[in-house]
Design a protein around this nucleic acid. Structure first.
Lengths: 343, 343
DNA sequence: ATTAGGTTTGAATTCGGATTCATGAGAATG
DNA sequence: CATTCTCATGAATCCGAATTCAAACCTAAT
């Protein structure tokens, strides 16, 4: 590698001091135009790129944030990440991507290394509801905003959708389509977000006078394969759900996968509704009925809020807590129940 | 924010010098066990986390790499990113995610900031074939490995699949299924990878004695919406393709989307084949026939190669150039042509 | 001409570890 | 016992900018 060129090199080439170079670089007022030009000239000639590491050390700012996601392969997160990185670039921040695979242990590790790398702030999309480390961060006033995630802690900043309500919307939709045997792919209850969806599902059914059939709900970890197997097994039974509500579109796709493998027609023989409204759901070949989360808006908001926390040092302000409204979007995968069940 | 605790604080608390603290942190030999314990004790009591920024400045290593992708929303890249970040974490590197939206201008900007942030190396998944900046990096011996990407430059390191061959496989498959009117969603020819697929498509047809119908090929930028519109328009015509080959699964999904919107049945009335083999392709509800790229293997390789470039300072060695074999995987979306065309 | 006030610039210091150099304490050798 | 070597540790320096402090210039007003 080249012996990197420093501001000192630029300085001597331009016949000024390093301080002056620094001033030019940072657009200080009070620099004679001619000196400025000399410096810029030298910079260009030497192909100098300022060392952001050194800069960070001196300025205590890295212009880098951490983005922690449970699974970047889940389109909802990928799509969110796209918006977040895009906005970040506009605001001149870079983002370190941390994919935890929904393992708490990885979350801890990543937070640790992000702190070590002195990122200016962190966005967390899969914070288990009592995570101690995250609480500590909040208590220290470190800039953190949860995205589609919540916690049991009064000071958290978060941006999420009304998950409880969203789940109820889904349940009512299926009910209106005359479904009574409803399968449910739950999310881990360690996440408050999915926990709320779980509650919404239960309460929604209860309000409609339906008992939750435990055998119809999957409540282990997020795993495409396991959900696929679970659904497949269930669909083989004589008494099977006529509809499924999955706590994420990704899991809804696993349900569709299983249904297809059993040659069960959707929506004629089985209705499926998801949650998130990933881009793929709009694809008419799939046409997944789902509960919308306003991704674009949410992702823009998290980034803006995080940056304002970072830059305005706005520790005094009340926590940023935004709950948006979910909406049901009916597409192809749900229809009126026509299956006779031995109920 | 807390007034961060430095190694000096640890040192004075432990009654030793900062050098000693540093030595303990870096596991130097020749440290008395008792001193080591004192230091570790102090570290724990103070909750000290070493400042990786300062460390980087001194050591000239950041243990951070850049990952530049054209579109993180494309499952192929998301799935690759997952493997890459996972391996990176194992090898104690962090990754800065750079999403260019396939804009060359963003590529330049990102490379610039990554260099500024002194990353140890860069993985690029969408390098236009003559990109000057990237060539410069190679010439300077900066660690860069292209992933599913190639360039016109002898010294590049890359890991990719035989794209030309893959495209031919696709064409032959459709031919064998009796398709003669084949639509093609090309990739930008600024990328050597997709350019090779384009060539493979053309040559494949030529070898089979078929002329390429220009009107059947989409050759603008990657854009889901435009591909959707293009396909939709094409499908409305009296003489329309009976099959489509798309240069990526993502685009194949756009074709399926358009077909569904026109109520055209796949595969009875239209066959579709993609490229990449994203996880979704396996989903039996979709069952996309496609050309496999061994993602997992490729992604593992890039990271390993990049790290070996970084750590072994192995500038002398010959460039790392790996071409893997693609494979055709037939699923639901392709079938024997049954449409009568007025040919 | 003198003084007050703003403009420009450089020297020196700082950020927090890594590392080199030097020194003192033992241990081993002759 | 003198000498050499290894072990342990601290002092000082360095990495490359940002920033503070102070000095040198100007300019305008008295």
């Amino acid at each position: 590698m080249k012996g990197t060129i420093s501001a000192y090199d630029v300085a001597s080439k331009a016949g000024v001091s390093q301080s002056t170079v620094s001033r030019v670089l940072n657009n200080y007022p009070h620099i004679k135009e001619s000196t400025k030009q000399k410096v810029l000239m030298a910079i260009k000639e030497l192909g100098f790129t300022r060392d952001e590491i050194a800069r960070s050390l001196a300025s205590k700012k890295t212009r880098t944030i951490g983005l922690i996601v449970g699974d970047i392969t889940n389109p909802f997160f990928a799509e969110s990440a796209k918006v977040i990185t895009g906005k970040a670039q506009e605001m001149e921040y870079d983002v370190i991507l941390c994919n935890t695979n929904h393992k708490e242990e990885n979350l801890y590790k990543y937070i640790q290394t992000l702190i070590g790398k002195r990122v200016d702030g962190i966005i967390i999309t899969s914070a288990d509801k009592d995570n101690q480390k995250i609480k500590e961060l909040y208590d220290q006033g470190f800039p953190v905003v949860l995205y589609n995630s919540l916690m049991n802690h009064e000071k958290v900043n978060y941006i999420a959708v009304n998950n409880y309500k969203g789940a109820k919307l889904a349940v009512r939709h299926l009910y209106q389509l005359n479904h009574r045997l409803i399968g449910y792919i739950a999310g881990p209850s360690k996440y408050l977000t999915t926990h709320l969806r779980n509650l919404g599902f239960q309460d929604g059914l209860k309000e409609l006078g339906i008992d939750v059939n435990k055998a119809f709900v999957y409540d282990k970890e997020f795993s495409y394969d396991e959900v696929y197997q679970f659904t497949k097994r269930l669909l083989k039974k004589p008494t099977r759900p006529t509809a499924f509500f999955a706590t994420s579109d990704q899991m809804a796709l696993a349900v569709l996968d299983a249904a297809a493998s059993e040659n069960i027609n959707v929506p004629q023989e089985l209705s499926v509704i998801g949650f998130d409204d990933i881009d793929m759901a709009k694809n008419q070949f799939i046409g997944l009925t789902t509960i919308t989360q306003p991704k674009e808006k949410m992702a823009t908001l998290v980034l803006e809020k995080l940056v304002s926390l970072i830059e305005e040092n706005d520790e005094l302000g009340s926590p940023i807590q935004i709950i948006l409204e979910p909406e049901l979007i009916q597409r192809r995968t749900t229809g009126v129940n026509s299956v006779q069940n031995g109920v």
